[in-house]
Design a protein around this nucleic acid. Structure first.
Lengths: 210, 210
DNA sequence: CCATATCGGTGGTCAGACCACTTTGCTATT
DNA sequence: AATAGCAAAGTGGTCTGACCACCGATATGG
């Protein structure tokens, strides 16, 4: 293989690097097609099996999506099937879970504060609908509520991070806030009491089913 | 391949499943050796390349460790390697500079608030030293200061995320706060005015060199 | 007894061969 | 001319076999 690499680095790791740069160079976005395995094999001067080792790893992470007979495409991080397998390995440590839950809560708090300035009365009503439609399913309610918030946050990076965290955490626990929290938050948003959002989040812990 | 699998599931995904069960059955712990690639290939009735696709994916995630000439071993798992891989793609692919900067600032604010409760007077003095030692180099000062804070935050996940963001953002610009900010923050920490940390961050923007 | 050469097992990589699937475009029939 | 049907090309999915480089244990020679 001719992929430039630090001493002892394995070929597939170099491939990974190379693919990242390729994505960057061509400014590829989710949904775009990346070169075929055989083409990459030729371009990067590496065996097809090495290419595949890199691609499979990326696929496991949900970074790409492969369609038999069509090609390989950049993914937009849908909940991927393998997340379960991953999580079963990853989230064994309690400290990891704790870190994740805390980080996720922080993100939720901050995106709420970011979205705050952009929410209109209409948005407010839609949020209320979301709460009512899902009142029977706390977990779904939680996801729907914050997904809506996220769409008004105007920060794609934070959105991606939150989706990922949500994906992982949802495979182990069902985390959500209790009814009171959402109503209190709605009230704060409605009544323009920005300063109290912080406090509300910090004084609330997740509930958990299962 | 004879690995039992749901319709259309790929072989390597079945292998993943199989390996996890194997680990479970034999109660393997970190450091233990797992069967060789050729042995797995025979036992699971799959080609060695498929076995490798599964193992490489696991390796990339940090689940296993491979020693050339010796074998493959369960890793003393560092779950956060996964975060790095994911983040390295997410950060690069589609985050505008603006998103990244904002997210980074949020993380810095929140880790400071987390660390707040753990900081002792000694820590406080050390932070002051850091500021003085780097007074000539704003960028280095920024990194050193928050690295220290991070070490007292007790949330490895947030730490990883911050390091990555710092890494990526530093390739684009040199961001730091102005002198006043750090002194003000020091004062707040010292005088136990937790509630004002939030405001200080939100009223301060990054400076930028280059 | 020790230093060393050898050998078997292991991961690392490649090349080539099929297969299954999708798309495309040509062909032959209507 | 329009269309139904099929063939070909391109792609991912998988397996096999072949080397290489590396490690550890064992046999060998001093």
């Amino acid at each position: 293989m001719a992929v430039s690499m630090s001493p002892k680095q394995k070929v597939y790791q170099g491939i990974l690097q190379e693919i990242r740069e390729l994505i960057d160079r061509h400014n590829l976005k989710p949904g775009d097609k990346i070169p075929s395995e055989r083409e990459l094999s030729g371009k990067l001067q590496a065996g097809r099996s090495s290419i595949r080792e890199a691609l499979r790893a990326m696929e496991l992470l949900g970074l790409i999506e492969t369609r038999h007979g069509e090609g390989t495409f950049l993914s937009n991080y849908q909940p991927y099937q393998t997340v379960e397998i991953l999580a079963s390995f990853i989230l064994q440590e309690n400290s990891t879970k704790r870190d994740l839950v805390l980080a996720k809560q922080i993100i939720e708090k901050e995106i709420t504060k970011l979205a705050y300035q952009q929410l209109t009365p209409t948005n407010f009503k839609e949020l209320q609908s979301i709460l009512e439609e899902n009142k029977h399913n706390p977990k779904e309610r939680h996801v729907a509520y914050f997904r809506y918030i996220l769409n008004h946050t105007d920060n794609l990076l934070l959105a991606k991070i939150w989706y990922l965290m949500e994906d992982f955490s949802s495979t182990v626990n069902n985390l959500y806030y209790d009814d009171y929290f959402y109503q209190a938050l709605q009230t704060l948003l409605y009544e323009n009491r920005y300063g109290q959002i912080e406090r509300l989040f910090m004084n609330t812990s997740y509930k958990e089913t299962e």
